[in-house]
């Protein structure tokens, strides 16, 4: 690919030119770079150090080498449980949420009357987010006397307490997360808006049916946004905390023990920040592997208007 931004018109040697490009690039990313160097990297290294120590938050950390990591992999069933719950959660909720978000975004990508109101309506659950109110609402909705059971009883399904049943608690939380699909929906919407309408018009002239249009135009044109949503939802899926913490506290019997909840419990409940830091770094590595995998696969399905303009 050709040099994208030529900083200098005159040829003063390639090296010099590259140096100038570097400067311009760094100038643009300077805000982030400064923040990273000033505020992010230090605390990250500190937490890496804590992961090799016995640190109870309130007294000085003491070095124990790999102790935390060994404990985690040899003698901690709750770590395994947390990992299992989180993986199930990510694998089920992320595709569901994205599919739903894309579907709704496409419904709303029209100039029909009232879409503005609809968009707002469907975004509301995401505004409720992680407030104390939502925990109460959700418990009420899926509780034994809740609205969901009222609806199901019409079909003769017996009432159970969905939020706290060992069999259904995780599914209920997944449903909650999928229901808050507002943010990927908005991003899809913004992406859909960027697709030139002429493409569809041309396709319609060629007699392509809506399915064809979806697979031949929408999906490829949207691939960079799908990619973004996939990466971010996966990372955020691994970090999911609020829903479980506010509604089930990881229970019953650790059936909804998300990794971040376990980590939090260790750090601030049991005063074992050393162990929590080790947990965090293991999560980082797991998360990085998944993300790297998505990034690697991107070459084959993500299409950029700017770079793949073939």
């Amino acid at each position: 690919m050709a040099e994208q931004v030529q900083v200098s018109g005159q040829s003063k040697g390639k090296l010099h030119k590259q140096w100038k490009t570097d400067l311009v690039g760094l100038a643009f990313i300077a805000p982030w770079l400064i923040g990273f160097l000033c505020f992010i990297i230090g605390p990250m290294i500190a937490s890496l150090y804590f992961s090799f120590t016995n640190y109870d938050l309130l007294t000085e950390p003491t070095w124990i080498g790999l102790g935390n990591y060994i404990q985690m992999f040899t003698n901690d069933v709750r770590f395994i449980q947390a990992l299992k719950v989180t993986l199930i959660f990510v694998f089920v909720s992320v595709p569901l949420k994205l599919a739903f978000a894309l579907f709704v975004a496409m419904l709303f990508n029209t100039k029909r009357k009232g879409v503005g109101i609809y968009r707002t309506l469907y975004y509301i659950p995401s505004i409720l987010g992680g407030s104390v109110a939502i925990a109460v609402v959700w418990k009420q909705l899926f509780g034994r006397d809740g609205a969901i059971n009222d609806i199901l009883s019409v079909f003769g399904i017996p009432s159970i307490s969905w939020v706290t049943s060992p069999d259904f608690a995780l599914s209920t939380l997944i449903l909650l997360v999928v229901w808050q699909f507002g943010s990927p929906m908005l991003i899809f919407l913004a992406g859909l808006k960027a697709i030139p309408t002429e493409l569809y018009e041309a396709a319609a002239v060629d007699g392509a049916n809506p399915f064809h249009q979806f697979f031949k135009i929408t999906l490829p044109m949207l691939s960079s946004v799908i990619f973004f949503n996939l990466v971010m939802q996966t990372i955020q899926g691994f970090m999911t905390f609020t829903q479980s913490f506010l509604i089930t506290q990881g229970g019953p019997m650790d059936k909804t023990l998300f990794y971040a909840v376990y980590l939090y419990e260790k750090a601030f409940g049991h005063f074992d920040m050393g162990y929590a830091s080790a947990l965090a770094w293991v999560l980082l590595i797991i998360c990085a592997i998944f993300t790297a995998f998505i990034f690697r696969s991107a070459g084959s399905w993500v299409h950029y208007e700017s770079e793949g303009g073939k």
Partner: peptide, 11 residues
């Protein structure tokens, strides 16, 4: 990818 809980205190 690093949960904020563990960087809270150094920060």
């Amino acid at each position: 990818m690093l949960p904020s809980q563990v960087t809270l205190i150094p920060q």
